[in-house]
Design a protein around this nucleic acid. Structure first.
Lengths: 248, 248
DNA sequence: CGTAACTGGTCTGCTGGACGGACCACCCGA
DNA sequence: TCGGGTGGTCCGTCCAGCAGACCAGTTACG
Protein backbone atom coordinates (compact mmCIF):
# COMPACT_ATOMS: atom_id res chain seq x y z
CA UNK A 1 0.00 0.00 0.00
CA UNK A 2 1.53 3.22 -1.15
CA UNK A 3 0.07 5.47 1.51
CA UNK A 4 2.35 4.33 4.33
CA UNK A 5 5.52 3.30 2.45
CA UNK A 6 7.67 5.58 4.59
CA UNK A 7 6.27 3.97 7.73
CA UNK A 8 7.43 0.60 6.47
CA UNK A 9 10.85 1.88 5.49
CA UNK A 10 11.33 3.86 8.70
CA UNK A 11 9.52 1.82 11.33
CA UNK A 12 10.90 3.98 14.12
CA UNK A 13 8.84 6.88 12.81
CA UNK A 14 5.83 5.28 14.48
CA UNK A 15 5.38 4.41 18.09
CA UNK A 16 4.29 6.61 20.95
CA UNK A 17 6.39 9.57 21.84
CA UNK A 18 7.55 9.83 25.41
CA UNK A 19 5.19 12.08 27.28
CA UNK A 20 5.89 12.81 30.88
CA UNK A 21 4.38 15.20 33.35
CA UNK A 22 6.62 17.52 35.32
CA UNK A 23 5.69 15.55 38.43
CA UNK A 24 6.86 12.30 36.87
CA UNK A 25 10.08 13.94 35.69
CA UNK A 26 10.87 15.08 39.22
CA UNK A 27 10.02 11.63 40.57
CA UNK A 28 12.28 10.02 37.99
CA UNK A 29 15.15 12.35 38.77
CA UNK A 30 14.96 11.55 42.47
CA UNK A 31 14.66 7.86 41.69
CA UNK A 32 17.76 7.74 39.52
CA UNK A 33 19.74 9.70 42.11
CA UNK A 34 18.74 7.08 44.69
CA UNK A 35 19.47 4.20 42.30
CA UNK A 36 22.94 5.53 41.45
CA UNK A 37 23.78 6.08 45.11
CA UNK A 38 24.05 9.84 44.86
CA UNK A 39 21.19 10.01 47.38
CA UNK A 40 21.61 7.46 50.14
CA UNK A 41 19.28 5.97 52.76
CA UNK A 42 18.88 8.38 55.64
CA UNK A 43 19.72 11.49 53.60
CA UNK A 44 17.33 14.36 54.23
CA UNK A 45 15.86 15.98 51.17
CA UNK A 46 15.71 19.76 51.00
CA UNK A 47 12.33 21.15 52.01
CA UNK A 48 9.56 21.20 49.44
CA UNK A 49 9.77 24.95 48.92
CA UNK A 50 13.53 24.77 48.41
CA UNK A 51 13.29 21.84 45.99
CA UNK A 52 10.59 23.64 44.03
CA UNK A 53 12.86 26.63 43.79
CA UNK A 54 15.98 24.82 42.56
CA UNK A 55 14.02 22.60 40.15
CA UNK A 56 12.04 25.55 38.80
CA UNK A 57 8.68 23.92 39.36
CA UNK A 58 5.81 24.63 41.70
CA UNK A 59 5.64 23.23 45.22
CA UNK A 60 2.56 21.30 44.14
CA UNK A 61 4.61 19.46 41.51
CA UNK A 62 7.32 18.58 44.03
CA UNK A 63 4.67 17.34 46.46
CA UNK A 64 3.16 15.16 43.79
CA UNK A 65 6.53 13.64 42.96
CA UNK A 66 7.36 12.97 46.60
CA UNK A 67 3.95 11.41 47.05
CA UNK A 68 4.65 9.02 44.18
CA UNK A 69 7.97 7.98 45.73
CA UNK A 70 6.51 7.73 49.19
CA UNK A 71 3.87 5.35 47.83
CA UNK A 72 6.67 3.27 46.33
CA UNK A 73 8.53 3.18 49.64
CA UNK A 74 11.56 5.08 48.34
CA UNK A 75 11.06 8.19 50.50
CA UNK A 76 9.75 8.66 54.03
CA UNK A 77 7.50 11.62 54.71
CA UNK A 78 6.17 12.95 57.98
CA UNK A 79 4.59 16.26 58.79
CA UNK A 80 6.83 18.84 60.39
CA UNK A 81 10.12 17.16 59.51
CA UNK A 82 12.04 16.91 56.28
CA UNK A 83 11.49 13.97 53.97
CA UNK A 84 14.18 11.30 54.03
CA UNK A 85 15.50 8.66 51.68
CA UNK A 86 14.15 5.32 52.87
CA UNK A 87 16.31 2.30 53.56
CA UNK A 88 15.92 0.86 50.11
CA UNK A 89 18.29 -0.62 47.55
CA UNK A 90 17.45 0.55 44.05
CA UNK A 91 20.79 -0.35 42.49
CA UNK A 92 19.08 -2.96 40.33
CA UNK A 93 16.36 -0.67 39.08
CA UNK A 94 16.77 -0.43 35.32
CA UNK A 95 17.47 3.14 34.34
CA UNK A 96 16.96 4.36 30.83
CA UNK A 97 19.63 6.95 30.31
CA UNK A 98 18.84 7.59 26.68
CA UNK A 99 15.80 9.51 25.58
CA UNK A 100 12.82 7.49 24.54
CA UNK A 101 13.57 5.56 21.35
CA UNK A 102 16.66 7.69 20.77
CA UNK A 103 18.78 4.70 19.85
CA UNK A 104 16.13 3.40 17.45
CA UNK A 105 16.78 6.49 15.37
CA UNK A 106 20.28 5.30 14.41
CA UNK A 107 20.95 2.77 11.74
CA UNK A 108 21.88 -0.80 12.43
CA UNK A 109 25.58 -0.33 11.68
CA UNK A 110 25.96 2.53 14.16
CA UNK A 111 24.26 0.56 16.92
CA UNK A 112 26.17 -2.61 16.13
CA UNK A 113 29.46 -0.70 16.25
CA UNK A 114 28.53 0.80 19.59
CA UNK A 115 27.64 -2.63 20.99
CA UNK A 116 30.89 -4.14 19.76
CA UNK A 117 32.85 -1.49 21.59
CA UNK A 118 30.93 -0.95 24.79
CA UNK A 119 29.17 -4.25 25.36
CA UNK A 120 32.27 -6.31 24.66
CA UNK A 121 34.21 -4.16 27.14
CA UNK A 122 31.45 -4.44 29.75
CA UNK A 123 31.37 -8.20 29.41
CA UNK A 124 35.17 -8.39 29.55
CA UNK A 125 35.17 -6.45 32.80
CA UNK A 126 32.46 -8.73 34.15
CA UNK A 127 34.78 -11.71 33.76
CA UNK A 128 37.06 -10.32 36.45
CA UNK A 129 34.39 -9.04 38.74
CA UNK A 130 31.53 -11.53 38.56
CA UNK A 131 30.88 -13.39 41.82
CA UNK A 132 29.79 -16.95 42.54
CA UNK A 133 26.20 -16.03 43.30
CA UNK A 134 25.84 -14.24 40.00
CA UNK A 135 27.35 -17.17 38.11
CA UNK A 136 24.83 -19.46 39.77
CA UNK A 137 22.04 -17.11 38.81
CA UNK A 138 23.17 -17.24 35.19
CA UNK A 139 23.19 -21.02 35.27
CA UNK A 140 19.69 -20.99 36.72
CA UNK A 141 18.60 -18.68 33.91
CA UNK A 142 20.07 -21.13 31.38
CA UNK A 143 18.05 -23.93 32.98
CA UNK A 144 14.93 -21.79 32.68
CA UNK A 145 15.65 -21.05 29.00
CA UNK A 146 16.13 -24.75 28.27
CA UNK A 147 12.71 -25.52 29.73
CA UNK A 148 10.82 -22.67 28.09
CA UNK A 149 10.13 -24.49 24.85
CA UNK A 150 8.51 -22.27 22.23
CA UNK A 151 7.22 -19.45 24.45
CA UNK A 152 8.89 -16.46 22.75
CA UNK A 153 7.80 -13.83 25.25
CA UNK A 154 9.06 -15.78 28.24
CA UNK A 155 12.31 -16.50 26.44
CA UNK A 156 12.80 -12.79 25.70
CA UNK A 157 12.18 -11.86 29.32
CA UNK A 158 14.68 -14.48 30.41
CA UNK A 159 17.11 -13.30 27.74
CA UNK A 160 16.92 -9.77 29.04
CA UNK A 161 17.48 -10.88 32.63
CA UNK A 162 20.46 -12.95 31.46
CA UNK A 163 22.06 -9.97 29.69
CA UNK A 164 21.35 -7.49 32.47
CA UNK A 165 22.84 -9.81 35.06
CA UNK A 166 26.12 -9.95 33.16
CA UNK A 167 26.10 -6.22 32.37
CA UNK A 168 25.64 -5.31 36.04
CA UNK A 169 28.75 -7.23 37.01
CA UNK A 170 31.07 -4.88 35.11
CA UNK A 171 31.54 -2.32 37.87
CA UNK A 172 30.56 0.80 35.91
CA UNK A 173 26.85 1.66 36.31
CA UNK A 174 26.89 4.23 33.49
CA UNK A 175 28.24 1.73 30.94
CA UNK A 176 25.83 -0.87 32.34
CA UNK A 177 22.85 1.39 31.77
CA UNK A 178 24.07 2.45 28.33
CA UNK A 179 24.40 -1.15 27.09
CA UNK A 180 20.99 -1.93 28.58
CA UNK A 181 19.61 0.77 26.31
CA UNK A 182 21.62 -0.60 23.37
CA UNK A 183 20.21 -4.05 24.16
CA UNK A 184 16.71 -2.62 23.64
CA UNK A 185 17.46 -1.51 20.06
CA UNK A 186 14.50 -2.25 17.81
CA UNK A 187 13.14 -4.59 20.46
CA UNK A 188 9.61 -4.45 19.05
CA UNK A 189 10.91 -5.91 15.80
CA UNK A 190 13.31 -8.40 17.30
CA UNK A 191 10.37 -10.18 18.86
CA UNK A 192 9.50 -11.29 15.35
CA UNK A 193 13.09 -12.35 14.72
CA UNK A 194 13.05 -14.52 17.82
CA UNK A 195 9.86 -16.24 16.68
CA UNK A 196 11.66 -17.68 13.65
CA UNK A 197 12.18 -21.45 14.09
CA UNK A 198 15.63 -22.21 15.50
CA UNK A 199 16.29 -18.66 16.74
CA UNK A 200 15.76 -19.44 20.39
CA UNK A 201 17.91 -22.57 20.15
CA UNK A 202 20.75 -20.59 18.60
CA UNK A 203 20.45 -17.94 21.28
CA UNK A 204 20.42 -20.56 24.03
CA UNK A 205 23.59 -22.16 22.66
CA UNK A 206 25.32 -18.80 22.58
CA UNK A 207 24.29 -18.28 26.21
CA UNK A 208 25.66 -21.69 27.23
CA UNK A 209 29.03 -20.89 25.64
CA UNK A 210 29.10 -17.52 27.40
CA UNK A 211 28.38 -18.95 30.85
CA UNK A 212 30.91 -21.76 30.44
CA UNK A 213 33.59 -19.25 29.51
CA UNK A 214 32.60 -17.00 32.43
CA UNK A 215 32.85 -19.95 34.80
CA UNK A 216 36.39 -20.62 33.54
CA UNK A 217 37.20 -16.87 33.87
CA UNK A 218 38.36 -17.11 30.28
CA UNK A 219 38.14 -13.47 29.18
CA UNK A 220 39.15 -14.02 25.52
CA UNK A 221 36.58 -16.80 25.22
CA UNK A 222 33.81 -14.72 26.85
CA UNK A 223 34.63 -11.80 24.59
CA UNK A 224 34.64 -13.98 21.50
CA UNK A 225 31.36 -15.67 22.46
CA UNK A 226 29.72 -12.28 22.92
CA UNK A 227 31.08 -10.99 19.62
CA UNK A 228 29.53 -13.98 17.89
CA UNK A 229 26.29 -13.41 19.76
CA UNK A 230 26.20 -9.77 18.68
CA UNK A 231 27.05 -10.70 15.11
CA UNK A 232 24.15 -13.13 15.07
CA UNK A 233 21.84 -10.39 16.31
CA UNK A 234 23.19 -8.04 13.62
CA UNK A 235 22.69 -10.61 10.86
CA UNK A 236 19.15 -11.51 11.87
CA UNK A 237 18.16 -7.85 12.20
CA UNK A 238 19.65 -7.10 8.78
CA UNK A 239 17.81 -10.02 7.19
CA UNK A 240 14.55 -8.99 8.83
CA UNK A 241 14.91 -5.44 7.54
CA UNK A 242 15.59 -6.62 4.02
CA UNK A 243 12.55 -8.88 4.15
CA UNK A 244 10.41 -5.90 5.17
CA UNK A 245 11.81 -3.88 2.26
CA UNK A 246 10.95 -6.48 -0.40
CA UNK A 247 7.46 -6.88 1.06
CA UNK A 248 6.62 -3.22 0.43
CA UNK B 1 24.58 26.64 55.97
CA UNK B 2 22.93 23.50 57.20
CA UNK B 3 19.64 23.82 55.35
CA UNK B 4 20.97 22.94 51.94
CA UNK B 5 23.83 20.58 52.78
CA UNK B 6 22.46 17.88 50.52
CA UNK B 7 22.27 20.37 47.64
CA UNK B 8 25.97 21.04 48.06
CA UNK B 9 26.87 17.38 48.27
CA UNK B 10 24.62 16.37 45.40
CA UNK B 11 24.71 19.36 43.07
CA UNK B 12 22.89 17.45 40.34
CA UNK B 13 19.80 17.40 42.56
CA UNK B 14 19.18 20.99 41.50
CA UNK B 15 18.74 22.35 38.06
CA UNK B 16 15.64 22.44 35.92
CA UNK B 17 14.00 19.23 34.99
CA UNK B 18 13.43 18.61 31.33
CA UNK B 19 9.91 19.60 30.46
CA UNK B 20 8.77 19.12 26.94
CA UNK B 21 5.40 19.43 25.32
CA UNK B 22 4.09 16.61 23.18
CA UNK B 23 4.42 18.92 20.17
CA UNK B 24 8.13 19.49 20.90
CA UNK B 25 8.68 15.77 21.40
CA UNK B 26 7.19 15.02 17.99
CA UNK B 27 9.25 17.80 16.43
CA UNK B 28 12.40 16.42 18.08
CA UNK B 29 11.69 12.90 16.91
CA UNK B 30 11.28 14.03 13.31
CA UNK B 31 14.40 16.17 13.62
CA UNK B 32 16.60 13.35 14.85
CA UNK B 33 15.29 11.04 12.13
CA UNK B 34 16.28 13.65 9.57
CA UNK B 35 19.65 14.28 11.25
CA UNK B 36 20.50 10.57 11.35
CA UNK B 37 19.52 10.10 7.70
CA UNK B 38 16.59 7.81 8.41
CA UNK B 39 14.37 10.43 6.78
CA UNK B 40 15.97 11.89 3.67
CA UNK B 41 15.35 15.00 1.58
CA UNK B 42 12.39 14.45 -0.71
CA UNK B 43 10.77 11.76 1.45
CA UNK B 44 7.05 12.27 1.88
CA UNK B 45 5.79 12.17 5.43
CA UNK B 46 2.62 10.23 6.18
CA UNK B 47 -0.47 12.43 6.31
CA UNK B 48 -1.20 14.32 9.49
CA UNK B 49 -4.07 12.02 10.44
CA UNK B 50 -1.92 8.93 9.94
CA UNK B 51 1.01 10.37 11.88
CA UNK B 52 -1.31 11.33 14.71
CA UNK B 53 -2.61 7.78 14.78
CA UNK B 54 0.77 6.02 14.88
CA UNK B 55 2.25 8.49 17.38
CA UNK B 56 -0.83 8.35 19.61
CA UNK B 57 -1.27 12.08 19.73
CA UNK B 58 -3.90 14.41 18.33
CA UNK B 59 -3.75 15.83 14.83
CA UNK B 60 -3.39 19.25 16.41
CA UNK B 61 -0.17 18.17 18.11
CA UNK B 62 1.24 16.78 14.87
CA UNK B 63 0.33 19.99 13.08
CA UNK B 64 2.09 22.04 15.69
CA UNK B 65 5.23 19.94 15.38
CA UNK B 66 5.25 20.14 11.60
CA UNK B 67 4.75 23.87 11.86
CA UNK B 68 7.83 24.16 14.06
CA UNK B 69 9.92 22.22 11.55
CA UNK B 70 8.49 24.08 8.60
CA UNK B 71 9.50 27.35 10.24
CA UNK B 72 13.02 25.95 10.65
CA UNK B 73 13.15 24.96 6.99
CA UNK B 74 13.41 21.20 7.70
CA UNK B 75 10.01 20.27 6.22
CA UNK B 76 8.06 21.62 3.27
CA UNK B 77 4.32 21.97 3.64
CA UNK B 78 1.69 22.82 1.06
CA UNK B 79 -2.05 22.48 1.23
CA UNK B 80 -3.51 19.45 -0.52
CA UNK B 81 -0.26 17.52 -0.81
CA UNK B 82 1.78 15.56 1.70
CA UNK B 83 4.54 17.29 3.61
CA UNK B 84 8.07 16.52 2.45
CA UNK B 85 11.52 16.52 3.97
CA UNK B 86 13.32 19.61 2.73
CA UNK B 87 16.71 19.55 1.06
CA UNK B 88 18.61 20.19 4.26
CA UNK B 89 21.68 18.66 5.86
CA UNK B 90 21.21 18.19 9.59
CA UNK B 91 24.05 15.73 10.07
CA UNK B 92 25.89 18.23 12.22
CA UNK B 93 22.96 19.07 14.46
CA UNK B 94 23.94 18.08 17.97
CA UNK B 95 21.60 15.40 19.24
CA UNK B 96 21.23 14.68 22.91
CA UNK B 97 20.59 10.98 23.09
CA UNK B 98 20.61 10.80 26.87
CA UNK B 99 17.75 12.07 28.96
CA UNK B 100 18.18 15.48 30.46
CA UNK B 101 20.99 15.48 33.04
CA UNK B 102 20.95 11.69 33.08
CA UNK B 103 24.71 11.47 32.99
CA UNK B 104 25.05 14.02 35.78
CA UNK B 105 23.37 11.47 38.04
CA UNK B 106 26.40 9.14 37.88
CA UNK B 107 29.50 9.61 39.92
CA UNK B 108 32.72 10.94 38.52
CA UNK B 109 34.42 7.54 38.32
CA UNK B 110 31.64 5.98 36.26
CA UNK B 111 31.66 8.87 33.79
CA UNK B 112 35.45 8.95 33.60
CA UNK B 113 35.51 5.21 32.92
CA UNK B 114 32.96 5.62 30.16
CA UNK B 115 34.94 8.45 28.60
CA UNK B 116 38.17 6.46 28.70
CA UNK B 117 36.51 3.63 26.81
CA UNK B 118 34.27 5.36 24.33
CA UNK B 119 35.92 8.70 23.78
CA UNK B 120 39.38 7.22 23.35
CA UNK B 121 37.96 4.78 20.79
CA UNK B 122 36.12 7.56 18.97
CA UNK B 123 39.23 9.68 18.79
CA UNK B 124 41.31 6.71 17.65
CA UNK B 125 38.87 6.09 14.82
CA UNK B 126 39.01 9.77 13.91
CA UNK B 127 42.75 9.47 13.26
CA UNK B 128 42.08 7.20 10.29
CA UNK B 129 39.07 9.02 8.97
CA UNK B 130 39.69 12.72 9.52
CA UNK B 131 40.05 14.74 6.33
CA UNK B 132 42.22 17.72 5.43
CA UNK B 133 39.42 20.27 5.77
CA UNK B 134 38.63 19.10 9.27
CA UNK B 135 42.28 19.21 10.27
CA UNK B 136 42.43 22.80 9.00
CA UNK B 137 39.33 23.62 10.99
CA UNK B 138 40.96 22.25 14.13
CA UNK B 139 44.04 24.37 13.53
CA UNK B 140 41.85 27.43 13.05
CA UNK B 141 40.13 26.62 16.35
CA UNK B 142 43.54 26.43 18.03
CA UNK B 143 44.38 29.86 16.65
CA UNK B 144 41.12 31.20 18.04
CA UNK B 145 41.84 29.66 21.46
CA UNK B 146 45.31 31.22 21.53
CA UNK B 147 43.80 34.67 20.93
CA UNK B 148 40.91 34.40 23.37
CA UNK B 149 42.87 35.54 26.38
CA UNK B 150 40.91 35.20 29.63
CA UNK B 151 37.38 35.02 28.26
CA UNK B 152 36.24 31.74 29.85
CA UNK B 153 32.88 31.51 28.11
CA UNK B 154 34.35 32.01 24.65
CA UNK B 155 37.06 29.47 25.43
CA UNK B 156 34.48 26.92 26.51
CA UNK B 157 32.44 27.43 23.36
CA UNK B 158 35.56 26.99 21.29
CA UNK B 159 36.58 23.97 23.37
CA UNK B 160 33.23 22.35 22.68
CA UNK B 161 33.50 23.01 18.95
CA UNK B 162 37.02 21.56 19.00
CA UNK B 163 35.88 18.33 20.70
CA UNK B 164 32.75 17.94 18.58
CA UNK B 165 34.73 18.35 15.39
CA UNK B 166 37.03 15.49 16.33
CA UNK B 167 34.16 13.32 17.61
CA UNK B 168 32.23 13.71 14.36
CA UNK B 169 35.13 12.37 12.35
CA UNK B 170 34.88 8.88 13.90
CA UNK B 171 32.32 7.45 11.49
CA UNK B 172 29.76 6.23 14.06
CA UNK B 173 27.06 8.85 14.75
CA UNK B 174 25.72 7.01 17.81
CA UNK B 175 29.10 6.92 19.53
CA UNK B 176 29.66 10.53 18.46
CA UNK B 177 26.43 11.65 20.09
CA UNK B 178 27.08 9.60 23.22
CA UNK B 179 30.50 11.13 23.81
CA UNK B 180 29.02 14.57 23.15
CA UNK B 181 26.69 13.88 26.06
CA UNK B 182 29.60 12.58 28.17
CA UNK B 183 31.49 15.76 27.28
CA UNK B 184 28.68 17.77 28.89
CA UNK B 185 29.06 16.04 32.26
CA UNK B 186 28.76 18.55 35.09
CA UNK B 187 29.28 21.34 32.58
CA UNK B 188 27.74 23.95 34.86
CA UNK B 189 30.44 23.22 37.43
CA UNK B 190 33.31 22.85 35.00
CA UNK B 191 32.89 26.48 34.05
CA UNK B 192 34.26 27.32 37.47
CA UNK B 193 37.12 24.88 36.99
CA UNK B 194 38.07 26.57 33.73
CA UNK B 195 38.14 29.96 35.44
CA UNK B 196 41.03 28.85 37.65
CA UNK B 197 44.28 30.58 36.56
CA UNK B 198 46.29 28.38 34.21
CA UNK B 199 43.40 26.05 33.35
CA UNK B 200 42.82 27.44 29.88
CA UNK B 201 46.55 27.40 29.13
CA UNK B 202 46.77 23.74 30.13
CA UNK B 203 43.75 22.89 28.04
CA UNK B 204 45.17 24.77 25.08
CA UNK B 205 48.46 22.90 25.30
CA UNK B 206 46.59 19.57 25.40
CA UNK B 207 44.72 20.65 22.27
CA UNK B 208 47.95 21.57 20.47
CA UNK B 209 49.41 18.15 21.22
CA UNK B 210 46.25 16.46 19.98
CA UNK B 211 46.15 18.34 16.68
CA UNK B 212 49.85 17.79 16.02
CA UNK B 213 49.42 14.06 16.57
CA UNK B 214 46.31 14.03 14.36
CA UNK B 215 48.23 15.77 11.62
CA UNK B 216 50.92 13.09 11.82
CA UNK B 217 48.19 10.38 11.78
CA UNK B 218 49.90 9.07 14.89
CA UNK B 219 47.11 7.07 16.51
CA UNK B 220 49.00 6.01 19.66
CA UNK B 221 50.05 9.64 20.25
CA UNK B 222 46.51 10.96 19.69
CA UNK B 223 45.11 8.34 22.04
CA UNK B 224 47.72 9.10 24.69
CA UNK B 225 47.17 12.88 24.39
CA UNK B 226 43.44 12.38 24.85
CA UNK B 227 43.94 10.09 27.83
CA UNK B 228 46.04 12.79 29.47
CA UNK B 229 43.42 15.40 28.59
CA UNK B 230 40.68 13.27 30.16
CA UNK B 231 42.81 12.60 33.22
CA UNK B 232 43.32 16.32 33.68
CA UNK B 233 39.57 16.88 33.48
CA UNK B 234 39.04 14.08 36.01
CA UNK B 235 41.58 15.52 38.43
CA UNK B 236 40.26 19.06 38.25
CA UNK B 237 36.67 17.89 38.70
CA UNK B 238 37.69 15.76 41.70
CA UNK B 239 39.58 18.67 43.27
CA UNK B 240 36.62 21.00 42.71
CA UNK B 241 34.25 18.56 44.35
CA UNK B 242 36.50 18.18 47.37
CA UNK B 243 36.75 21.94 47.73
CA UNK B 244 32.96 22.16 47.72
CA UNK B 245 32.78 19.50 50.42
CA UNK B 246 35.17 21.26 52.80
CA UNK B 247 33.36 24.55 52.27
CA UNK B 248 30.09 23.13 53.60
C1' DC C 1 -13.99 17.50 -17.50
C1' DG C 2 -16.23 16.36 -13.22
C1' DT C 3 -15.94 14.03 -8.96
C1' DA C 4 -14.41 11.64 -5.04
C1' DA C 5 -10.86 10.82 -1.98
C1' DC C 6 -7.08 12.33 -0.42
C1' DT C 7 -4.41 16.34 1.61
C1' DG C 8 -3.56 20.59 4.68
C1' DG C 9 -6.04 24.72 7.18
C1' DT C 10 -9.17 26.67 10.78
C1' DC C 11 -12.02 26.70 14.75
C1' DT C 12 -14.50 25.29 19.23
C1' DG C 13 -15.40 23.42 23.77
C1' DC C 14 -13.64 20.31 27.25
C1' DT C 15 -10.13 18.22 30.41
C1' DG C 16 -6.04 17.65 33.07
C1' DG C 17 -1.70 19.34 34.73
C1' DA C 18 0.91 23.15 36.51
C1' DC C 19 1.06 27.27 38.79
C1' DG C 20 1.08 30.92 42.62
C1' DG C 21 -0.75 31.93 46.67
C1' DA C 22 -2.99 31.53 51.18
C1' DC C 23 -3.73 29.21 55.27
C1' DC C 24 -3.57 25.17 58.69
C1' DA C 25 -1.16 21.76 61.71
C1' DC C 26 3.12 19.40 63.33
C1' DC C 27 8.11 19.43 64.87
C1' DC C 28 12.10 21.05 67.13
C1' DG C 29 15.61 23.98 68.99
C1' DA C 30 16.54 28.11 71.69
C1' DT D 1 6.76 28.49 75.59
C1' DC D 2 7.52 30.36 71.19
C1' DG D 3 9.14 31.21 66.66
C1' DG D 4 10.83 29.39 62.52
C1' DG D 5 11.12 25.68 60.19
C1' DT D 6 8.48 21.66 58.11
C1' DG D 7 4.54 19.06 55.57
C1' DG D 8 -0.75 19.21 54.46
C1' DT D 9 -4.87 21.25 52.21
C1' DC D 10 -7.40 24.16 49.18
C1' DC D 11 -8.58 27.58 45.43
C1' DG D 12 -8.73 30.14 41.07
C1' DT D 13 -6.23 30.78 36.74
C1' DC D 14 -3.77 29.46 32.60
C1' DC D 15 -2.04 26.46 29.03
C1' DA D 16 -1.43 22.29 26.25
C1' DG D 17 -3.71 18.51 24.30
C1' DC D 18 -7.70 16.47 22.78
C1' DA D 19 -11.81 15.07 19.68
C1' DG D 20 -14.51 16.67 16.45
C1' DA D 21 -16.48 19.44 12.75
C1' DC D 22 -15.97 21.94 8.74
C1' DC D 23 -13.45 24.48 4.85
C1' DA D 24 -10.22 24.76 0.85
C1' DG D 25 -6.55 22.80 -2.28
C1' DT D 26 -4.70 18.75 -5.01
C1' DT D 27 -4.78 14.71 -7.71
C1' DA D 28 -6.12 10.49 -9.78
C1' DC D 29 -9.69 8.15 -12.07
C1' DG D 30 -13.76 7.31 -14.83
Amino acid sequence: MKTDGILTQVPTLGGSIHRQTARDAVADKLTTLIATGMLRPGDELPGERELAHVLHVSRETVRGAIQILSAKGFIEVSQGTRSRIANVDLSHLPITITSSSAIDRYDLDAVHGARLLVEVHVVGEAVDKIDEATLSKLEALLETQREIGQDVMRFLMCDREFHLTIYRACGNPLLTDFVIDLYGYLMAHRRHAMAVPGAMDNSYEDHVAIVEALRRRDKPAVVEAFRQHLTRIYDTTLAMRQRARTAS
